[in-house]
Design a binder for these strands. Structure first.
Lengths: 211, 211
DNA sequence: TATATATTTGAACAGTTGTTCAAATATATA
DNA sequence: TATATATTTGAACAACTGTTCAAATATATA
């Protein structure tokens, strides 16, 4: 009987890191197990040993950091006072991801690029996004409803949808806005983005959720 | 010498339609030429005859409708008066895509799902999105600057970035919000989304672009 | 009708894909 | 040290990949 402790195996972590980086760049089907193992410097058979199939490896890549992210988001949301403003609710939801990404940790940067792709993919969104991130999303919605007592539930959900779109494109780090703005705006300037994103989204929520 | 008139060949259009539908579902690498030709009911060698490589076929899929979309958006923007409100500018930019998608045309629905994925992909965004859509995007930015004379260029570009994120996630039609909201919100209800999206984004722009 | 051109067919090519497994090696336990 | 378990190795499998091409067929031109 084999007992695999993925979290403690440096080989397993090397595979996850390489898979994360390559999936973020080229997507699930754009990357082969040989790409991953070559990048990680390990044998081809090892992903199967630790994770089973390629699909299970993919899901492990997602779950490794979603657990951390969900905990941080949830605790930031529950730390809020009952009278919290929409600004602070949006900050609580978006800031944990942002802080991880701007820290310079290349793993988190790859992860956020990967999640952005998944969130906009018909194939993966329901299967992965819903499963991993909906509980925290519902807590965000619950807090926002308290903030706008007269808002209809639909309005709050659509507001969350717009927030999610703006946030995921930001974390996608595509570099398109750099080209469009002739390098006036930098995809990597997450602090500058954040300073504008929270007011932008707060005003948007107020516009559709206030009577 | 072979003279190929792609736009008039029903075979070429069948290939483009099938490629569009399958790429929208599974992405560039998730679809093989055999999937496409089987779906279209044509021989394997025909994509090469009409389009050359798989990559060139992919780009033809994108360009076929981006030409139409760009013309409609550009003419909607230039039809605006000089004193146009941010609401009307956002409408001019987003409405053409919306109208095509809600018309029930399955081809345009597939196309919008595909563009949403490309917009959030590091691999394709610069190569395809910038090339296809930046001229019209710059016209949007130019009109928005007139609307907010005291706004810094950076603020307008970032506003466009948030708009683009919200819009692409909407057109991605992932169905995630349906699950999250327990079917209270429907991804397919583009009219209901639009009614909220324009006010949401207008308020966002005002928040970061007004002094 | 005869000729030229456009299109379609069916097969083949070499390279890559995910997955499997017995054997070899390393590590921990007794 | 001896034994059991965990991990790594290297090769093999059949299926699938994008691309190519000569031959066959259809269509237009003269």
């Amino acid at each position: 009987m084999k007992i695999i402790a993925i979290k403690k195996s440096v080989t397993a972590q090397k595979i996850l890191d390489s898979a994360e980086a390559l999936f973020a760049e080229s997507g699930y089907d754009g990357v082969s197990l040989r790409h991953i193992t070559r990048h990680a410097g390990v044998e081809l058979a090892l992903p199967n040993y630790y994770f089973g199939t390629k699909l299970e490896l993919f899901k492990h890549v997602i779950e490794r950091r979603s657990e951390i992210l969900n905990e941080e988001r949830m605790s930031a949301l529950t730390r809020l006072e009952n009278s919290a403003s929409i600004d602070s609710i949006i900050s609580a939801f978006t800031e944990p991801f942002l802080r991880r990404t701007i820290s310079g940790d290349i793993g988190w940067q790859n992860y956020s690029r990967l999640v952005a792709q998944i969130a906009n993919s018909a194939r993966w969104s329901r299967e992965i996004m819903s499963h991993e991130f909906d509980p925290v999303a519902l807590e965000f919605v619950r807090r926002t409803k308290i903030c706008f007592p007269s808002a209809k539930d639909q309005d709050v959900f659509w507001g969350f949808h717009f927030l999610l779109g703006a946030m995921t494109l930001t974390f996608a780090q595509t570099g398109r806005i750099d080209i469009l703005s002739k390098e006036l705006c930098k995809t990597t300037d997450l602090v500058g983005i954040y300073k504008r994103m929270v007011p932008f989204l707060s005003a948007g929520f107020s516009a559709i959720c206030e009577a």
